[in-house]
Nucleic acid binder design. Structure first.
Lengths: 205, 205
DNA sequence: GAATTAAGTTGAAGTCGTTCACTTTTGTAG
DNA sequence: CTACAAAAGTGAACGACTTCAACTTAATTC
């Protein structure tokens, strides 16, 4: 028997997260009121805080869903990388970018990023940073994979180049979410311009 | 005649900024109460808001002092760059890093960064982003200068490489301020590891 | 199945950044 | 010197996240 209490608990948590996504998207993260969100989930304000430590933690839970999906897609690509160094790196990265607005608005990304910088020691801050790290590791893994197939010069440390490229794409993604007017294409072209020269230089000719 | 009103105004603004730096450093930015800061500056809470639009704006005013100094030092270096590509880039960047804790604590950096991401359209957010851009431009200027002296391959776009390197150092600096325990040396060595391979590849041999 | 304990819910109160209607001070004109 | 206008200062009130002491409800024991 699942237990009434356990079922109620799971149901409430789900309702709260659903209500949060709905409210955040409808009103924006900042303008979303915990009270409204609680009402929509049919619980009290206190109960929301029983399930999530803060408004930010609810947000990071949504970010985590997003990033987990993207990581899974990326892992498939690393397991079977395109031949071109250029294409391999950019396909991977554009995969991140193109999925990024599936559940989250730019505003939601901004607040999640800000939270992770502002409060790096909170559970939500840590969690965000950890997701970032896993993305960085995946870029490094891609470079290592390309070294295995002989596409990338074997004398380079994949960690250094991977981190460099990830840091760059992360910063450009930050610029992207900071500017509501910037379309994905501009992000693509900027990151291409910065990634391609490196791809060319690290490739075996 | 300077005018009593103008003098009092300038004096109050100075007192508020001074009180802010003192209070932020003593208690930390988050724990600093506007009320305490106002009391220390011998004005009312309302007057603080008469001079600065928000708590964050006071913080960014301090950041700006810091960055302006660093930019000036960097400009001197770009005007007369070291011969080595390696040394030129790392000296410039380490100059940024080593000055970064002169007026600001790591916590203050974190809140300033968070603010600029969270609220990119506010005056303070814009101001921070603009300072960042000027730093990025300076890295690009250094690469352009090294192309002029023939140290860097002339076929590369200095903007793309400069932005890439700046994005990397900025992200690593963010990681540095997120971790209270990380010493400057680790930041140096991480950025060296990521910058050196690129420096080697873009240098004329 | 009544009593007891443990787990979870509730919303009013607390905190702190920010605003605004009112007061005070400075500058100016008659 | 008085009266008026403009500028600046003030702090109580407000809004929104978060906490917590009191209350319900589920589980367990006898």
């Amino acid at each position: 028997m699942a237990g009434l209490r356990a079922r109620q608990k799971a149901d409430r948590e789900r309702r709260i997260l659903e209500a949060a996504v709905t409210t955040f998207r409808a009103k924006g993260y900042r303008a979303a009121r915990i009270e409204e969100l609680a009402h929509r989930a049919e619980v009290s304000v206190g109960t929301v805080y029983n399930y999530y430590q803060s408004k930010g933690e609810i947000l990071v839970a949504v970010v985590a869903m997003e990033v987990e999906e993207v990581l899974a897609a990326g892992a498939a690509m690393v397991a079977n990388p395109p031949e071109d160094v250029d294409a391999a790196l950019l396909d991977l990265v554009f995969g991140y970018f193109d999925h990024s607005l599936k559940y989250l608005s730019k505003e939601m990304w901004r607040f999640a990023m800000a939270l992770s910088i502002e409060s790096p020691q909170t559970p939500s801050g840590r969690r965000y940073t950890e997701l970032d790290q896993r993305l960085a590791d995946q870029v490094t893994a891609m470079i290592a994979a390309l070294q295995k197939t002989g596409e990338v010069r074997p004398d380079l440390a994949p960690g250094a180049i991977g981190t460099l490229l990830f840091n760059n794409l992360n910063q450009e993604f930050t610029a992207f979410v900071k500017d509501e007017a910037m379309p994905l294409e501009i992000l693509h072209s900027r990151v291409s311009a910065q990634t391609r020269p490196v791809a060319r230089m690290i490739a075996t000719r």
